[in-house]
Lab assay of single mutants.
Amino acid sequence: MSIQHFRVALIPFFAAFCLPVFAHPETLVKVKDAEDQLGARVGYIELDLNSGKILESFRPEERFPMMSTFKVLLCGAVLSRVDAGQEQLGRRIHYSQNDLVEYSPVTEKHLTDGMTVRELCSAAITMSDNTAANLLLTTIGGPKELTAFLHNMGDHVTRLDRWEPELNEAIPNDERDTTMPAAMATTLRKLLTGELLTLASRQQLIDWMEADKVAGPLLRSALPAGWFIADKSGAGERGSRGIIAALGPDGKPSRIVVIYTTGSQATMDERNRQIAEIGASLIKHW
């Protein structure tokens, strides 16, 4: 067993022997301040990774656009098919120029040779490549099948209805392509620590998230040296922004954090800054 596999296998073990965790309302004060600064709703939840206990939450059962955070769930569904012998990570998928959609920095470079399922998941999570996500959605049967996968996990809230990039439209009061912070946090925890996926697939999923290259201005910008984070960000229309993450000190994750916002007129930089400040408060009061 590799060191990384050992780390993920012992996530519940280490967490069980940690000192009790206590909620700190100071972080919620910052979440509410972010709402004021952005002029928009902000949803927040913080779960203990081992027990699933909610440590703090704000608007945990209000719907927010998922945006690209759905790509972690998508690759979880792909990995479940791999575990069941219905898919192979090494299978190569070929596609054409007509398949390319807006923001496809990886797939646009491989029109000639195609990409493997493993490479597509890596591109979808680490670079948020939209064509990679659409190609992977095709392998599982489309958005409705991802929703069905989530329902089978016990998540009857999260739903995907459309493809990239239309799913980022974020129309107010439109339930399409949305989740709730509580539902997303619980589902992410199941994917990373539950028995739904094999140990190898859980490790692969967290490795992809740990290698995320496009979430630097968010929670990662607030992390002290030595902290662990595996995350996936999302951005959408109407001032929408979000991030889902597993993080913790001492090089291992111990909490799940989900943050979503929508309806702001603020710039992307300002949305990023507010999420980073929430992260800084979380870490300060850990």
Rank of each mutant, 00 (worst) to 15 (best):
H24C: 05
P25T: 09
L28M: 08
L28T: 09
V29W: 06
K30N: 05
K30A: 10
V31N: 04
K32H: 15
D33Q: 03
A34N: 06
E35Y: 07
Q37C: 02
A40G: 07
R41T: 06
V42R: 00
Y44R: 01
I45M: 12
I45E: 06
E46F: 12
E46N: 15
L47Y: 03
L47V: 07
D48N: 02
N50S: 08
N50P: 06
S51N: 10
G52A: 12
L55A: 12
L55K: 14
E56G: 04
S57A: 06
S57K: 07
R59T: 13
P60S: 13
P60T: 10
E61K: 06
E62V: 02
E62Y: 02
R63A: 12
P65L: 08
P65T: 07
P65A: 11
P65Q: 04
M67S: 12
M67P: 00
T69I: 12
K71P: 00
K71R: 00
V72I: 02
L74F: 01
L74K: 01
C75L: 11
C75N: 10
G76F: 05
L79Y: 11
L79F: 10
R81P: 01
R81M: 07
R81T: 10
V82Q: 04
D83G: 06
D83Q: 04
D83R: 04
A84R: 10
G85E: 09
Q86R: 10
E87H: 08
E87D: 12
E87T: 08
E87N: 07
E87Y: 12
Q88V: 13
Q88S: 11
G90S: 10
G90P: 13
R91C: 14
R91I: 07
R91D: 08
R91S: 09
I93E: 15
H94S: 06
Y95H: 13
N98L: 12
L100A: 12
L100C: 14
E102S: 06
E102V: 04
P105V: 06
V106R: 15
T107Q: 01
T107V: 13
T107A: 05
E108R: 14
E108A: 14
H110G: 13
L111C: 05
T112H: 12
D113Q: 03
D113W: 03
G114E: 03
G114D: 05
M115E: 09
M115W: 02
T116G: 13
T116S: 11
V117T: 07
R118F: 07
L120Q: 03
L120T: 04
L120F: 03
S122Y: 05
S122R: 06
A123S: 07
A124S: 13
A124K: 00
I125G: 01
T126L: 07
T126D: 06
M127R: 12
S128D: 00
S128L: 00
S128E: 00
D129Q: 00
N130D: 11
T131K: 03
A132T: 15
A133L: 00
A133P: 03
N134T: 10
N134R: 12
N134Y: 11
L135P: 00
L135A: 07
L135C: 03
L136N: 01
L137Y: 12
L137K: 02
T139C: 13
T139D: 12
I140H: 08
I140P: 01
G141V: 07
G141F: 06
G141Y: 14
G142N: 10
P143K: 02
K144E: 04
E145V: 05
L146P: 01
L146S: 07
L146F: 13
T147I: 09
A148R: 08
F149W: 04
F149M: 04
L150F: 15
L150C: 10
L150E: 14
H151N: 11
N152S: 07
N152F: 04
N152P: 09
N152I: 11
M153G: 02
M153E: 03
D155V: 01
H156S: 09
H156M: 13
V157K: 07
V157H: 13
T158Q: 01
T158F: 07
T158P: 01
R159S: 09
R159C: 08
L160S: 10
D161H: 03
D161F: 04
D161K: 03
R162Y: 09
R162E: 05
R162M: 09
P165W: 05
P165A: 09
N168P: 13
N168T: 12
A170Q: 11
I171N: 15
P172S: 04
N173F: 12
N173R: 12
D174L: 14
D174H: 12
D174K: 14
E175G: 09
E175C: 09
E175S: 11
R176M: 03
R176H: 10
D177E: 02
D177N: 04
T179A: 02
P181Y: 00
A182W: 02
M184F: 02
M184I: 02
T186V: 14
T186H: 09
T187C: 08
T187E: 09
T187N: 03
R189L: 06
R189A: 06
K190V: 11
L192R: 01
T193D: 09
T193G: 07
T193K: 15
E195H: 13
L196P: 11
T198N: 12
L199C: 12
L199R: 07
S201L: 14
R202M: 09
R202Q: 12
Q203I: 01
L205C: 12
L205I: 13
D207W: 12
W208Q: 06
W208I: 13
D212T: 07
K213E: 03
V214R: 11
V214C: 14
V214G: 08
V214K: 15
A215R: 10
A215Q: 06
A215G: 10
A215H: 15
A215T: 11
G216R: 08
P217Q: 12
L218D: 04
L219C: 08
R220M: 12
R220L: 14
S221V: 09
S221M: 06
S221A: 11
S221E: 05
A222L: 09
L223V: 10
L223Y: 03
L223R: 06
P224A: 11
P224K: 10
G226F: 11
W227D: 01
W227M: 10
A230H: 01
K232L: 00
K232Y: 00
S233E: 01
S233A: 07
G234H: 00
G234D: 00
G234F: 01
G234V: 00
A235F: 13
G236H: 04
E237A: 08
E237T: 13
R238E: 15
S240W: 01
S240H: 04
S240G: 11
R241V: 12
I243L: 15
I243A: 15
I243V: 13
A245W: 05
A245T: 07
A245E: 00
A245P: 00
A246H: 04
L247M: 15
P249D: 07
P249C: 04
D250Y: 02
D250W: 02
G251C: 11
G251W: 10
P253Y: 03
S254L: 05
R255G: 09
R255H: 09
R255A: 08
I256Q: 02
I259C: 02
I259E: 01
T262N: 05
T262E: 10
T262I: 07
T262R: 08
Q265P: 08
A266E: 07
T267M: 06
E270S: 05
E270Q: 01
E270R: 02
N272A: 14
R273H: 03
Q274K: 04
Q274E: 11
Q274T: 06
I275W: 15
I275T: 11
I278W: 06
G279V: 06
A280P: 06
S281L: 08
S281Q: 10
I283Q: 02
K284G: 05
K284R: 11
H285F: 03
H285N: 12
W286K: 02
W286P: 04
